[in-house]
Nucleic acid binder design. Structure first.
Lengths: 336, 336
DNA sequence: CTGAAAGCGCTTACAG
DNA sequence: CTGAAAGCGCTTACAG
């Protein structure tokens, strides 16, 4: 079905051996006569020969391909990090296979298996604790793998994370400065032990304490997305309702904005808002939305670079954790 | 470096031949004794054997992998279609490699080559006319390939498209109904002959004519994104400025919203707005934004199904063009 | 400077 | 019911 000209055809046509053609393909011209070189080159063009990477991989044991498994591709965070990973990889002529685990551990395991069977050279993953055993097995084998966005108690490994506590601290400090003294926070559930949520809530608590403001647990809403509307209602029905809210991520933000719109609260004036994660419409909104931006580009770049290094050196079992600094983008939703 | 247990190890350990293990792996139990079966199964688990898909592919000539090349992954359209393609493929245990050509023909050609050398079983692409020759070559070889979003004069092929003219017609009809009588349209440049832009402008013109409204070419702005702010200024400085505008896609929308905000126009009241492409924040905005939604999910699904069928049957050289219907989602930006 | 041979890890007719 | 052998398209020591 496909153009099936192989290295043998080229060799025959050019009147040399397969070995020589292979040397040519791999740019090992050291001992090759100019003439042979030219002849092979010409033949390759004439026959429109395209090497079979599969055959090459079988022999060389590498595929110039990495796998990236994200927990939920709907987050802007994921798409941005992926783009950045791809940029780095594309420059180095590495292909990337992107997988969306949909926060389903089984699905993720399945992807890992498929990717490994396709012999990808390494993996970047947003890890789930349910699959800790599998990660550990791979790491023990010195299989190159980088964690992103989450830490696992059970498995130490090179990891890229946001300084989540700082993100919350920036938000709290900024809101307090702008005279919002009753600050709530909303995130997805904490029970799954997912690093960003845990750390963002912890950072929020610590920041309040730093300012000697008591932490009111009623102001901490960590619930599934489908219960957020109801919990927001409850939150603002409290005897002393908050006058500001921190949104834990971009999907939570959508819920909060929708609630605010529905109830005709005046953003900024009545309810101060800061969200973690920059969203494309933040500046278009009225009032524009104050965000805490993750350096997604740098994080993706670092993840890719770490992985590619690991693949090349095939050695260092680093367990370093790289923390990236969030930055506050002040707009109008946090100004009275 | 990786667990290198192969089919030979399993065979030796289980006391059978490689052939038999292979039969087992491929679920050809027809003539296999229960006992052999059990023994192999047990050995595979004991050794934690994972078949090497690369070796398999070399022999079988298929990789259970397809390639998807989009022109610009920043469009919501692309990400949604990709997700939908992945859904279908994942169900059928096919992997997808996603590539972002960044609207760069060379980069795209490069991706095509890489994907082919990796022996992907087929390709879904948003085609660029610069690479028409390459598509034609592949199609002639009966290599399975599906076009998405764009038509190419030079190459006939199975294609998935929006009914773009209808999209504009829906927008025009709706705006006229709501008493906006001076309707402009803004898209990215037409010179590159890119189907959606051409057809959306054409649909706009035809719809106006249908209503016996003369087409004012000053109301048609097809310019690069970086010139949109300026052209919007020009547009609204006309002696008779428009009172409504149709946005050609989601990226254009951002420019228009930004312009409207900057100039403190009142959306809906002063300027009616309908955008082609549904965006996640459409309903959150104040006023909420009227959109023309593409059935991205169905389109991706269809593309994947057509491709997988083509791959399986390895035959039908269909050139059918599948047109999908857009739908109008009425919100408040188009109501006075 | 170039070629013959072995081998990567599978699958698949075919023989028995 | 199972195995020996050939072969997929490359690469890589090694020999000359």
């Amino acid at each position: 079905m496909r153009g099936k000209v192989t290295i043998s055809h080229v060799a025959r046509e050019a009147g040399v051996s397969k070995s020589t053609v292979s040397q040519f393909l791999n740019a090992r011209y050291d001992y090759m006569s100019e003439e042979t070189k030219k002849r092979i080159e010409k033949t390759i063009i004439e026959l429109n020969y395209q090497p079979n990477a599969i055959a090459r991989s079988l022999k060389t044991k590498n595929t110039a391909t990495i796998g990236v498994i994200v927990a939920n591709i709907l987050h802007t965070y994921s798409t941005q990090v992926i783009r950045s990973i791809e940029n780095v990889c594309h420059e180095r002529r590495i292909s990337t296979i992107i997988c969306n685990a949909d926060n389903d551990p089984e699905k993720e395991l399945n992807y890992i298996e498929t990717l490994l069977s396709k012999q990808v050279d390494g993996l970047i993953v947003i890890p789930m604790k349910e699959n800790a055993k599998e990660y550990r097995r791979l790491i023990n084998q010195k299989y190159p793998i980088i964690f992103l966005d989450r830490l696992l108690d059970e498995v130490e490994n090179e990891s890229i994370l946001l300084n989540n506590e700082l993100a919350s601290e920036l938000a709290v400090d900024h809101l307090l400065e702008n005279k919002y003294d009753k600050i709530a926070i909303m995130t997805t559930p904490l029970n799954a032990n997912i690093t960003p949520r845990l750390e963002r809530v912890r950072g929020y608590e610590n920041a309040l304490r730093k300012h000697r403001i008591p932490v009111d647990t009623q102001y901490i809403k960590s619930v599934p997305v489908n219960r957020m509307q109801k919990e927001l209602e409850n939150l603002f029905k409290l005897t002393i309702p908050p006058n500001a809210i921190i949104s834990g991520n971009d999907l939570t933000l959508v819920e909060i904005l929708s609630f605010i719109k529905q109830n005709e609260y005046v953003l900024g004036k009545e309810i101060g808002l800061v969200t973690i994660d920059e969203v494309p419409y933040a500046s278009l909104f009225t009032p524009s939305i104050t965000t805490i931006m993750q350096p997604t580009f740098e994080m993706g770049k670092k993840a890719a670079e770490l992985l590619l290094d690991k693949i090349e050196k095939k050695s260092n079992l680093s367990r370093e954790i790289y923390r990236f600094k969030p930055s506050l983008i002040v707009r109008n939703s946090s100004i009275k």
